[in-house]
Computed example of a mutant assay.
Amino acid sequence: MSDFGDNPCLDCGACCKSFRVSFYWAEALERGMPEVMAEQLTPHLSCMKGTNASAPYCAALGKGDAGRMACGVYAHRPSPCREVQIGDEKCERARAKHGLPALSCVS
């Protein structure tokens, strides 16, 4: 993983522990995501493993350098993960769910 500077996502992971991340099944293959990171929901939809639970926790989320939160498949992550932006509505909803303060800057 490259250096993302002062990226609040690297200390948070709230969205990875809040939402089911579902996408068209072929997207994982197209992006080169390891098969073990996705589980099939329907004949046409998959989701990130661990996010289809009552208490979602994406299997790709773990501790990276210096104990910071890190996505293990960041370069291969599916479109729903790419759509969440720092400080947007989904980000702030996830942060609030986990008792984290709102971000003061929006990119």
Rank of each mutant, 00 (worst) to 15 (best):
S22Y: 11
G13H: 08
E27M: 13
P101T: 09
A53H: 09
A70N: 08
R31Q: 05
A55S: 15
G32K: 08
E92I: 14
M69S: 08
K97I: 05
G72V: 04
F19A: 02
Y24W: 02
P78A: 08
K63F: 01
C15R: 08
R20T: 15
C15N: 12
R82K: 06
Y74P: 01
S18A: 14
Y74T: 03
P101I: 09
A96V: 10
A60S: 14
D88M: 13
C9L: 07
R31A: 05
L103H: 04
T42E: 05
C15Y: 09
Y74A: 02
H76R: 13
G87R: 04
G13A: 15
C81R: 06
P56C: 09
P34F: 01
L41K: 04
C16G: 06
G50P: 02
D65W: 06
A26L: 12
R77F: 01
S22K: 12
L103E: 05
A102C: 00
A96I: 09
L41G: 00
V73L: 04
G50I: 07
S107M: 15
G64T: 06
E35M: 01
C105G: 03
A38T: 10
C47G: 01
F23M: 08
G64Q: 06
N52A: 13
K63N: 00
C15D: 09
Y24N: 00
C105R: 12
H76W: 10
L100C: 10
C105S: 12
K63Y: 00
C47K: 03
A53Y: 03
S46W: 10
Y74E: 03
L45Y: 10
P43R: 11
E83Y: 06
R95Y: 08
E92A: 15
W25A: 13
C9N: 07
L100E: 13
L61C: 05
V106M: 10
S22Q: 14
E39K: 11
D65N: 04
S79H: 13
Q85N: 14
G67P: 00
Q40N: 03
C16D: 03
A59C: 10
P101Y: 06
R68H: 12
E89Y: 07
C16V: 07
N7T: 04
G5H: 08
G50H: 03
S54N: 12
G67I: 03
S104H: 12
A55K: 15
F4G: 00
Q40L: 11
R31S: 00
F23T: 02
R93D: 06
A53M: 12
F23H: 05
R20F: 02
Y74K: 03
A75G: 10
G64V: 06
S22F: 11
R93H: 05
F23A: 04
V21A: 09
G72A: 02
K97V: 03
M1F: 14
N52H: 12
V84M: 09
D6Y: 15
C91A: 15
K63T: 03
M37G: 01
L41M: 10
A66E: 14
A28Y: 07
C15P: 11
G67M: 00
R20K: 12
Q85Y: 13
A38Y: 01
D6K: 15
A70F: 09
R68F: 06
Y74N: 04
S104I: 13
V84W: 04
S46K: 02
C12Y: 07
R82F: 00
A66K: 14
R93S: 09
M33T: 05
C81W: 06
D11R: 15
A102S: 06
M69E: 06
S54A: 13
A75M: 14
R82H: 02
Q85G: 14
W25V: 11
